[in-house]
Design a protein around this nucleic acid. Structure first.
Lengths: 224, 224
DNA sequence: CGGGCATTTGAGCAAGATCAAAATGGGTGG
DNA sequence: CCACCCATTTTGATCTTGCTCAAATGCCCG
């Protein structure tokens, strides 16, 4: 990216924030939310029902942005919360609009980014709608492991893993008790190591087989 | 939208197609997919697992676009199929890229559109992950009824409804047998009328209460 | 009339939820 | 260093929702 573009983006930056683990980054339904980039730490987006049931939509790692929907729609359709201490880069509310005007050459990247975001939640929807509990857990662990590795977080064959079993449950549409049992099964099978806030994969191939998760799958449905 | 913009868009149009109900509009995993706008009829986007389980991601009504992800990512991460006979407007593969360059003033609308699309699947994810069967069915029926009405499809207090119970099941992460039973319950309660390809709502308020679904109508969309 | 779908019904079953309680394990303040 | 607190994980028991399997019914269309 050219220096000029970086300079422009920098000018739109409202500031850099640090927030402790567990803090609310975006309030669900809030109308005055900003656009953020996650610089360090983990966070997640979620929606909830009036009676408290909650669905985690997405886990956010460094480099991810949040608040695009909040900026474009009138109220934020989801909330976001920090899983660890996080560093955020905050932008002005109208950044997207102004950027699309003043730096059209970047707006294509934003469209691309938005499409990628939708692909991600499409994938999750497939899991939650059609995979069983073991498949879902395996799937999510492989997915997060992969992303954490490519975010450069791997150390000693494992990556940090700040999610509680409750978070896993809310992300997968399961009860936390059941998540616990599934996890024990995977551990016993030597497929994963998950303790003290770190995740290691014992047998990636087997885990992917469990999850039915292959990245370039040519899944073709038999001719009905 | 200015005449110049419309003219430009028109120039990118490859042609207008008619496809019969049940035909494949986008093949899952396909690499040579186009960008389409649905002019008339109903369709849906879906993903499937190697063993044939299928998740419907989204129902498409006239005015909706499909293939954005297919155009931006290297292979289409989802398929799309026609529910009724459809008319499509097809665009060149690189339309988005070129548009963002030549008509930057429109690219913001695309970002906006993409954000709306993600909000939609986020909503579905909440349903599938955290609502029970009755709530899910009620929710989806209200949602589709609303959209069909605002697409001007209402006649005689009901809207066309081309989905089979199998489609509902695949959209909601349920078995079609169970969908059938839930539907009977809603009918018995006088909440919905659903037969012969048409859907009517008996008691909207009650249905929304069942679905725990309170959400103001989606904002007006730009472009097309 | 007959073949293919879609819908419906019934029976049995199982995955996963719920409820309750015990064990673990830091973190904090005394 | 210890005692205590609170969140998280684990275990056990029971129950329910929704699935599976199977078959019947109805329906559209050639």
């Amino acid at each position: 990216m050219a220096a000029e573009q970086l300079g422009w983006i920098d000018a739109r930056k409202l500031g850099q924030l640090r927030r402790p683990a567990g803090s609310v980054l975006i309030t669900e339904g809030g109308t005055d939310e900003r656009l953020y980039t996650l610089l360090s730490g983990w966070a997640f987006r979620f929606k909830s029902l009036p009676d408290g049931r909650r669905q985690i939509l997405n886990i956010l790692l460094p480099g991810d942005t949040m608040g695009v929907q909040a900026e474009l729609l009138s109220a934020s359709p989801h909330g976001a919360e920090a899983l660890t201490d996080v560093d955020l880069c905050a932008f002005r509310r109208d950044t997207l609009l102004v950027l699309s005007r003043e730096h059209p050459e970047l707006s294509f990247d934003l469209i691309w980014l938005a499409a990628l975001g939708e692909k991600l939640t499409d994938d999750v929807l497939l899991s939650v709608g059609r995979r069983n509990a073991t498949e879902r857990v395996a799937m999510l662990l492989v997915h997060l492991y992969r992303r954490a590795v490519s975010a450069g977080l791997k150390q000693d064959d494992s990556v940090p893993f700040p999610l509680t079993q409750m978070h896993l449950a809310d992300a997968l549409g399961l009860s936390h008790v059941h998540v616990n049992r599934v996890l024990q099964g995977l551990r016993k099978g030597g497929l994963v190591r998950l303790s003290e806030g770190r995740l290691g994969i014992g047998d990636l191939r087997a885990l992917r087989r469990v999850a039915d998760y292959w990245d370039q799958p040519p899944p073709r449905r038999p001719l009905l």
